[in-house]
C-alpha cells in the first residue's frame, strides 16, 4: 500500500481520532489545572505514573479493574502532594512540575528493573475491555473501540460545560483569573486550585492508562513527550476545550502520518520520521500562533 492511499483512507481518519485520546485527555487535564491558576508541567509525569501503575498492578494482581482503580488513586495521591507543594507551600509551579517529572521518571525506571528485572518493558497483559456497542456502525466502529476514547470525545462537551456553564467552573476560573476578587466574594481559592489539580490528576491518569492498555504493556519512556505536546496543544487551543480538540487533532494527525510513513517504508530516514511530532510542535509554536494569553493568574501562587 503506498503512502497516498493509506493517508486518504477512512482507516487513517479513524486512526487520527483514536490516537487523539491521550493528547486530548492530557491537554484537558492541564487545562483544568491552569484554569484554576496552577501550571502543571508534570502532566507528562502523571501520564507516565498511571501507565506504569496500571500495567504493573494489572499484571501482579491479574485484575484489570484493580489496576485501573489503583492507578487512578495513585495519581490522585500524587496530585494532592503536587497541590501541597504548589498551593499550600506556594513553591514555584514550574520547578515543582519538573521535579515531579524527574522523580516519577526515576521511580518508574527503578521499580521496572526491581520488579521485572528489565530496564525496557513489562510483560504483556490484557488491556481494558473493548467497547463493542458501536463496532457494527461503519465509521464510528473504527475508532470508538474502548471506553476511554468514548469518554474522551464526551469530555470535549463535558469540560466546556463544566468550565463555562456551572458555578464550579466559574469559581475555578476565578481562581485562575483573579484570585483576590474571588476570595473577596467568599470563594475558597485554595480549595478550587486543589480541585483543578485533582481533576488534572484524574484525567492524566486516564491518558496514561489508555497508553498502557493500547500497547498491552508498559515500556520505559513510552509517554515520549506526549504530556508536553498536550501542553502545547492546550496553549495553541487558547485554553478553550473545543479549540484544544482541534489542536490535538492536528498533533494526532501528524502521529498517524508518522506511523503510515513507517509502515509504507518510505525513503525518509527513520530518525527524521520519529522526530516529526516534536519538530512540528516547535514549528507551530514559532509560526502559526499569535502571542498566547493564559489565564491572568496562571502560575501565580495565591
Amino acid at each position: 500500500m503506498d503512502l497516498i492511499t493509506s493517508v486518504i483512507s477512512l482507516g487513517f481518519v479513524a486512526q487520527v481520532l483514536r490516537l487523539m485520546t491521550p493528547f486530548y485527555l492530557g491537554a484537558s487535564a492541564a487545562n483544568f489545572s491552569e484554569r484554576g491558576g496552577v501550571i502543571n508541567i508534570s502532566v507528562e509525569g502523571f501520564m507516565n505514573l498511571s501507565a506504569f501503575s496500571f500495567a504493573v498492578i494489572s499484571i501482579l494482581t491479574g485484575n484489570i479493574t484493580a489496576g485501573f482503580i489503583l492507578a487512578v488513586l495513585i495519581n490522585l495521591l500524587f496530585s494532592v502532594v503536587f497541590g501541597y507543594f504548589t498551593v499550600s507551600l506556594k513553591i514555584n509551579q514550574i520547578v515543582t512540575g519538573v521535579g515531579f517529572n524527574l522523580f516519577i521518571a526515576g521511580l518508574t525506571k527503578f521499580l521496572l528493573v526491581y520488579i521485572f528485572s528489565s530496564s525496557s518493558n513489562t510483560p504483556r497483559f490484557e488491556g481494558l475491555p473493548e467497547f463493542t456497542l458501536f463496532s457494527s456502525i461503519p465509521f464510528f466502529g473504527l475508532f470508538l473501540t474502548d471506553y476511554i476514547t468514548l469518554f474522551c470525545f464526551l469530555l470535549i462537551f463535558i469540560s466546556a460545560y463544566i468550565l463555562f456553564k456551572t458555578r464550579f467552573g466559574l469559581r475555578l476560573r476565578s481562581a485562575g483569573e483573579n484570585p483576590a476578587a474571588g476570595e473577596s466574594l467568599g470563594i475558597k481559592i485554595r480549595n478550587y486550585r486543589y480541585y483543578g489539580i485533582l481533576i488534572c490528576g484524574f484525567l492524566s491518569s486516564l491518558a496514561g492508562i489508555w497508553m498502557a492498555s493500547n500497547q498491552n504493556s508498559y515500556s520505559d519512556g513510552m509517554i515520549a513527550g506526549r504530556g508536553y505536546i498536550a501542553l502545547a496543544a492546550m496553549i495553541i487551543g487558547k485554553w478553550k476545550p473545543v479549540n484544544i480538540f482541534f489542536a490535538c487533532l492536528m498533533f494526532s494527525a501528524f502521529e498517524a502520518f508518522e506511523i503510515s510513513l513507517q509502515i509504507t517504508g518510505s525513503d525518509i530516514p527513520s530518525q527524521l520520521i520519529q522526530m516529526l511530532p516534536y519538530f512540528i510542535t516547535i514549528l507551530v509554536l514559532i509560526g502559526f500562533i499569535g502571542k498566547t494569553k493564559p489565564p491572568a493568574a496562571d502560575g501565580v501562587p495565591y
Partner: peptide, 16 residues
C-alpha cells in the same frame, strides 16, 4: 515572541 514556556520547547528540542 509567543510567551510559550521554555520548559515545553526545550523538551521538544531534546527529541528533535
Amino acid at each position: 515572541k509567543k510567551d510559550v514556556s521554555e520548559v515545553i520547547t526545550t523538551i521538544m528540542m531534546n527529541f528533535v
